[in-house]
């Protein structure tokens, strides 16, 4: 086993792990707030990637320049989803909640395929891919610029989220609603607005992930499916509702996915099987996930 190869795999795993963490944190934010899993999360990611794509092909904006618009659009989509669908099923059985969001996902995927065809697309000459030839050498390890930028942005997003949730008044209100909706309402917090904000933030996070992912990944209507699957595993692994859990679990999932084939020498075709198996092994020891509260 070559040490350099292993080092390279660790670095790549951590980079993609940051993206997984960013996708997952949106899911876990929403869950922590209202115990609803958004099964349309992958389609939110897909829409963000298309937003980045069309920003380039229609308006000529690089995904990095259209990024604020993409994040804003996704925030809006999250709020609309809450207002239009979720607010009506807050007290419905868990199954109805699962299928309302699952139906939304199918609906969005169908629309995307109807309007934009099932073709695989990619953003033309993204700025990041051209920067310093698209790669940087750190010692013996070479890192893709888009991947590194994605990881960096994900890190910044986590920092911003932490500051917002733990330091701002609105963030504290969010936490209060997550803790105890009724008491928070008595304290004068409008829980309905907090829920809408939670959905907006959750979707905005996945919007950011989609915008950066679009610079180095193919864009097609069902692109969200595999990422969403990983996000569910990541969220459950970290503990539903835990933001630090999503970060740690995202990095772990990325590491397991990339390092395990290198380390144990099996075909990368099995990488997701190993990730899912790793998840099962962890939750069977810790049923509430790594950072779960219950």
């Amino acid at each position: 086993m070559d040490g350099d190869v292993l080092l390279q795999a660790i670095a790549s795993g951590l980079l993609i792990g940051m993206v997984y963490a960013l996708i997952s944190v949106g899911l876990t934010l929403i869950f922590g707030l209202m115990e609803i899993v958004n099964f349309a999360h992958g389609e939110f990611l897909m829409l963000a990637m298309y937003a980045a794509f069309f920003g380039r092909s229609l308006v000529g904006l690089d995904p990095m320049l259209s990024l604020p618009a993409t994040v804003g659009l996704l925030f809006l989509l999250g709020v609309l989803t809450y207002r239009g669908i979720i607010s009506r099923i807050l007290h419905a059985p868990m199954l109805a909640q699962i299928f309302a969001t699952f139906g939304l996902g199918l609906f969005l995927r169908g629309l995307a395929q109807f309007f934009w065809s099932p073709d695989f697309r990619s953003v033309e000459a993204p700025f990041l891919a051209g920067l310093s030839g698209g790669g940087v050498e750190v010692g013996s390890v070479s890192l893709g610029v888009p991947q590194s930028a994605a990881a960096l942005l994900a890190g910044l997003a986590f920092l911003a989220l932490y500051l917002f949730i733990d330091r701002s008044r609105t963030g504290l209100a969010l936490q209060a609603v997550a803790e105890d909706r009724a008491t928070a309402t008595l304290m004068g917090i409008n829980s309905d607005r907090m829920f809408a904000l939670g959905w907006g933030l959750g979707a905005a996070c996945v919007g950011l992930a989609g915008a950066v992912l679009a610079t180095f990944y193919y864009i097609y209507p069902s692109v969200g499916v595999v990422f969403a699957l990983i996000a569910y595993i990541t969220v459950a692994l970290g503990g539903f509702g835990s933001v630090p859990g999503a970060l740690v679990a995202g990095l772990l999932v990325g590491l397991v996915e990339v390092v395990s084939p290198t380390l144990f020498g099996f075909s990368p075709a099995y990488k997701y099987a190993v990730v899912f198996g790793f998840y099962l092994a962890v939750v069977l020891v810790r049923p509430q996930g790594l950072f779960g509260r219950f």
């Binding site: 309302a100 139906g103 199918l106 609906f107």
Partner: peptide, 9 residues
């Protein structure tokens, strides 16, 4: 998908 959503809601 739309129908599933409507029924769930």
């Amino acid at each position: 998908g739309g129908l599933i959503m409507l029924i769930a809601v």
